[in-house]
Nucleic acid binder design. Structure first.
Length: 761
DNA sequence: GCCCCTACTTAGCAGAGAGGGA
DNA sequence: TCCCTCTCTGCTAAGTAGGGGC
């Protein structure tokens, strides 16, 4: 691709943070990437790459193990003397065939440095048809093209500056970049948050000083004016928006072409998608809730910070020119392709496989199978924890109550949190103040859970749970103290392992979510239209989301949208009444022969009818005026003569006439029938159509209200066994496309291909 | 037994893109 | 066809779990 072209097209694209993006730095020897030491990174010396073979199990070990297993299976088969095909044996045959193919493929000469990830329209890899019980080895061979670095900061035009005390500030480029992080997000809630402002400002001042200071001494945040920077980025957004569809397509296709090679890797010789192949761009840390570090500067990541993981015999992707990778690893017991450490939270970040990869799919499948297994143990677990509500050992009581809460209310485990994180809790970290007891057995839970989402529930609990909670809160305990002072998720999980290896607190959430979904789906009658069935499926999904406390912020447009739909429904109802009045105009006797049909004729008060009429007329006027303006706007750009004002007047005049007609109707309740061809039958059929539209709109409104603060996606993506959805789709004859988006269909291909209409969780 | 670290899953948000109504 | 709304997708923060070292 022409580098200049890429520069100019990409200059109009935008990064996640809302910054204009120039070119993406690749690791294909792009010389434009200079280490300017942005955000305190010194110029890094070129050092030899450290290469470690960090395998806990070598591929030789893997081969040996595999061989042994094969022999064992072979023996087993003969012992049983059956001809039943063994999945593993089939897999072995398949694998050896595939291996031959693979070797051939990998021997194909590649372009000098890039591994080609050709899509030879090969069949989708049906990993779920193979046995694989080796969790330890994540891959046998792994080749990839490295990671994509974010674009460098594009200096602001000379007239765009930060102002301090109304004076323009000349900032060192590194500090300008940070000022831009803030300036670009001036209209967000983060930028209004004092903690965010403080953290940003203290890092910003440091960076200004570190890079030689500015022409003005910057001391006070309140004296800073970032508005010019904000306007600059807003105008860039407008330019981008105003491109023609063709231009936008062109830019996107160039971008896709450029990124193509990072999107795929060769996992055991097969082309599989990589998930987040982009290194996270620098910016301001957007912590959730009251995170003490929110607003701090997230530094730019360089190749020197990034370790890659791939096969020993895989070509090492060349780092951007003048740079080196931190380390090259060959660890086949892990599923990451690249890793680096983030400076604000000091956490490790990974580049992983995509959700539709065989590796992720297999682990998802195992997660749901483990949850299904819990079915066979749950009865005993429940019996045991009920017994232990009265145990003499405090730890056992705490364990019993915690297991109860996790089981019944789907609470998370609740690990310990550090001082420099948001104060959120889960089951084991619940404190005195999070639980209020109302005798005889009501408990109010009120705490911030993951992502600082509030969990508020007033519930009735088992009488002994109530008594125990009172005991766990007993003096000298006071606000701030742990409710479960003997318990940690680790202890609890170790206890759960006694029932079933691999059982942990989080399995209960998966189990209860999927169980709830199964139960809800079982209640749905197999009748009605596809649309109606989808609404019922969503309602079942919603039950799960509520159980898991998956929330979302009410969309800003929600209240207005609800109002609009309600208004529409009332308008349709009014139109329906008018049609019925017309029917009576044609045949008065019907009122006696079909009294029920005309029962609703008085359901609208004169006041409400008046209000509806006013709305309808106002809407009509607005529509006509807007269309007139739009048409003229278009004619203006074409240099054609504009439409005469009289034309608009004429149309508005007609609306006035209609308004007068409605007004008359308000008194007479007798709408005028304008066409001679109108018949009772025709009007009745129109009534029927309106009734259907009203029903649809009412359903839509209900759905909108119910979903306004509940996020359905999270449970669909992570908790509900996808085979339940597939079962529903097949049994109820609802196209899977109505239930799973494209990405979900890809992620859950294994479920779509393997479950039938009789599948049960 | 505790703490720290690594590895991976789960989560909401924001922007992009699709889709539907006027 | 255009515009607006809603859904989808990408992003990355925030959890869980478990292993290893002391």
């Amino acid at each position: 691709m022409d580098i200049e072209k890429r520069r100019s097209t990409a200059a109009l694209s935008e990064s996640h943070d809302g910054f204009p993006v120039t070119e993406s730095r690749s690791n294909t020897g792009d010389t434009s990437m200079k280490d300017e030491g942005t955000l305190g990174s010194p110029s890094l010396p070129v050092s030899p790459i450290k290469t470690t073979s960090h395998k806990r199990k070598t591929s030789d070990d893997f081969e040996k193990k595999k061989k042994k297993k094969k022999t064992d299976k072979h023996k087993h088969k003969h012992k049983n003397g059956t001809k039943k095909e063994n999945g593993n044996d089939l897999a072995t045959v398949k694998n050896s065939k595939e291996k031959k193919k693979r070797v051939k493929k990998e021997e194909t000469p590649l372009d000098s440095q890039t591994i080609e990830m050709k899509d030879e329209e090969e069949e989708k890899y049906r990993w779920w048809e193979e046995n694989n019980d080796n969790d330890e080895i994540k891959w046998h061979s792994l080749k990839h093209n490295g990671v994509l670095f974010p674009p460098e900061h594009v200096p602001l035009p000379s007239h765009v500056k930060l102002y301090y005390d109304k004076k323009p500030v000349d900032l060192p480029i590194q500090a300008e970049e940070v000022a831009c992080f803030f300036g670009a997000m001036l209209n967000t809630e983060h930028a209004q948050n004092p903690a965010f402002q403080n953290n940003f400002f203290s890092d910003f001042k440091k960076i200004v000083l570190e890079h030689g200071g500015a022409n003005v001494e910057i001391e006070n945040f309140d004296n800073c004016d970032f508005s010019k920077i904000f306007e600059h980025y807003e105008s860039q957004k407008t330019i981008k928006k105003s491109l023609t569809a063709a231009q936008k397509r062109e830019i996107k296709s160039e971008k896709d072409k450029f990124e193509e090679k990072y999107k795929y890797c060769l996992l055991n010789g097969r082309r599989e998608r990589v998930g987040n192949f982009r290194i996270e761009p620098p910016g301001l840390f957007r912590g959730r809730g009251s995170h003490p570090k929110t607003g701090r500067v997230k530094k730019r990541i360089y190749p020197e910070d990034v370790s890659l993981n791939l096969s020993e015999d895989a070509p090492i992707p060349p780092p951007p020119e003048g740079h080196q990778w931190k380390e090259i690893k060959h660890d086949n017991t892990v599923a990451w392709l690249a890793t680096w450490r983030e400076n604000v939270t000091n956490t490790v970040k990974y580049v992983l496989f995509a959700a539709d990869s065989s590796l992720k799919g297999r682990s998802d499948f195992k997660k749901f199978e483990k949850a299904r297994e819990l079915k066979n143990y749950i009865h005993r677990i429940r019996k045991d924890y009920k017994k232990n509500f009265s145990s003499k050992v405090m730890l056992e009581r705490q364990m019993a109550v915690a297991t109860y809460l996790i089981d019944v209310f789907a609470l998370r485990a609740g690990g310990e949190k550090a001082e420099d994180e948001a104060d959120t809790v889960g089951c084991c970290s619940l404190r005195y103040e999070h639980v209020t007891l109302k005798p005889p057995n009501t408990v109010v839970f009120d705490f911030l859970g993951k992502d600082s989402i509030r969990y508020y529930q007033e519930v009735n609990v088992h009488e002994k749970v109530f008594k125990n909670l009172r005991l766990f809160k007993k003096s000298p305990k006071q606000p701030g103290d742990d409710l479960f002072d003997r318990l940690t998720p680790n202890i609890l999980n170790k206890h759960l392992q006694n029932y079933l290896p691999g059982l942990s607190a989080k399995v209960f959430r998966t189990y209860n979510a999927s169980k709830t979904m199964q139960d809800q789906l079982d209640l749905i009658p197999n009748e009605g239209t596809v649309g109606e069935k989808v609404v019922k499926y969503n309602a079942a999904n919603r039950e799960v989301a509520i159980l898991c406390n998956h929330q979302r912020t009410k969309p800003k447009s929600h209240d207005m949208g609800v109002q609009r739909i309600s208004d529409n429904i009332r308008e349709m109802f009014w139109q329906k009444l008018r049609l019925k009045r017309m029917i009576l105009e044609l045949d008065k006797s019907l009122k006696k022969t079909k009294p029920y049909y005309f029962e609703e004729l008085d359901d609208l008060s004169v006041e409400e009818e008046q209000a509806i009429q006013d709305r309808v007329i106002a809407k009509e006027r607005e529509k006509v005026t807007k269309k007139f303006a739009r048409d003229n706007e278009k004619l203006k750009t074409e240099d054609s003569p504009l439409l005469p004002e009289a034309m608009l007047e004429e149309k508005l005049q007609k609306i006035d006439e209609l308004a007068a007609e409605y007004k008359k109707e308000l008194k007479t309740r007798k709408p005028e029938i304008k066409s001679v061809t109108v018949t009772v039958e025709k009007l009745e059929s129109q009534v029927e159509k309106l009734e259907q539209r009203i029903r649809n709109a009412t359903l839509l409104l209900q759905d909108k209200e119910d979903n306004s603060q509940v996020a359905l996606g999270t449970s669909k993506l992570n908790y509900i066994d996808p085979r339940l959805t597939v079962m529903f789709s097949k049994k109820y004859d609802v196209p899977i496309e109505k239930l799973f988006s494209k990405t979900l269909r890809e992620k859950f291909a294994w479920a779509i291909e393997s479950a039938d209409e009789n599948w049960t969780f």
